[in-house]
Design a protein around this nucleic acid. Sequence first.
RNA 1: GGUCGGAUGGCCGAGUGGCUAGGCUCAGCUCUGCAAAAGCUGCUACAGCGGUUCGAAUCCGCUUUCGACCUCCA
Length: 497
Amino acid sequence: MPKLFLYNSYTRQKEEFIPITPGYAGLYVCGPTVSGESHLGHARPYITFDVVKRYLRHLGYKVRYVRNITDAGHFEEEGREAIDKVNEKAKLEKLEPMEMVQKYTNLFHHGMKLFNCEDPSIEPTATGHIIEQINMIETIIAKGYAYEVNGSVYFDITRYAELYPYGKLSGRVLEDQLETTRELDGQEEKRNKADFALWKSAPPEHIMRWKSPWGEGFPGWHIECSAMSSKYLGDVFDIHGGGMDLQFPHHESEIAQSTIAHGHAPVNYWMHNNMITINGKKMGKSYNNVIKLSELFSGNHPILEQAYHPMVVRFYILTTHYRSTLDFSNEALQAAERAARRLWEAYELVKKLSHPGNETPADANLDAQVNTWCRECEDFMSDDFNTAKVIANLFFLAPVINGIKGGQVAPGALSAATLELVKDTFKTYLEDIMGMQPMQASQNNKLDSVLSVLIDIRKDAKKRKDFATSDQIRNKLAEAGVLLKDEKDGSVSYTVE
RNA sequence: GGUCGGAUGGCCGAGUGGCUAGGCUCAGCUCUGCAAAAGCUGCUACAGCGGUUCGAAUCCGCUUUCGACCUCCA
């Protein structure tokens, strides 16, 4: 198996990936909170880790990919006035909490499908794992690192920090945390401001509630990921992924809880994707600049100049390294749209390209260069998933492919084996690993036959040198969003906008 | 305020000491009835100042500036 290096946020350096069990890889990614519609920001981590998963599989690992759905818990943890988001919105929409959770879960799944993100192996919900969470909290209490107050349970950070490097992942110093002035619900009953809730006592009006050894309540946010990841991947697992904004407090707390509950750190490699920004500002509910996925795909948003195909968004995300911030703009996405289209068309083209059969390339230099470009893709991916460089190499190959079709490159310039390698490289990296798909709706047969009638009429007109007619057909079709292309060999192809 | 990370050509973005990243845009050319597409060519940048080095976008220092996290967040 080829070596894979990835950047471990915990140690802040690139490390070789050594799985716990040879041949197997366990991957946990924090999923969405389904109290609202999925937005552009969600696209980044799930596309990023979709590619991680696909690449691990490509390398030969059997991957178990667990991604949770947060449908309870930390909605309710917030300040006094923030109330329970699920309850609140449910009243407004006159929906049952679980009905709303279901609705947004479905929408999330729909978005993931459009992005061509593969389903996780297991998609556990927080509400489905209350028992596991309670068990874990009991263990932590028994070990003396959590305490109960008025039906709520808090994790004792101060005690934890005596023995363990609390704050290492997020680069934080506990003393600073203790001085924080934030006003959190239940702040006065905590021993220490930095302590976080494992279990919250539910006020009477709270709908989502479960029985526990400490009375009726609901789990804190962080405990769900710890309980579910250890259940499905083990007390120690390979890779934990998520957005950078989750490093603190979420992932830091996960580490603390699991370390106490299981006696050792839970994760070997932490991976964090960077944020998407809009006009230089992070997109988030608090900033009021959220673009929902449905708005992105329809173009129905003040910031958007047009609708963007899910594959354009996916491609755009992959042209940037996952640890860099990615600034959104119409200009950038429109550039990505052209680029993605060109690359995909080259792929479609190379699939159909036939080779004269010579085993010795007519152009040895080009042949060698092409081989290098193809083989480098694996090196780039294995160096912390550098999709940007892979895409650059595919763009080196595109002119060669187009050149063979267009006659600028001799058909036998490459050896038969090299042409096969090019085909395989596009299939493997563009389609299988980066998960790109065609952006055109599959053409339906009726449209096809209607167009072929028009194309034939136009061909006749051209033969008669009746260019007025042929241009009229082409122009009218263009107005209708169908672009005709006269190919070199006399055939006509078309694309639908 | 604390912690951390950026500042790359018209735009987006790779890149950690020497080798053209790439894409998009733009201009010219080839092909073409014309277009489109495609190919070729051109546009060659690393915030500023200083330092280390034979050599720096890349390392160090300072300055300016932007952002992230510190509160739910992907």
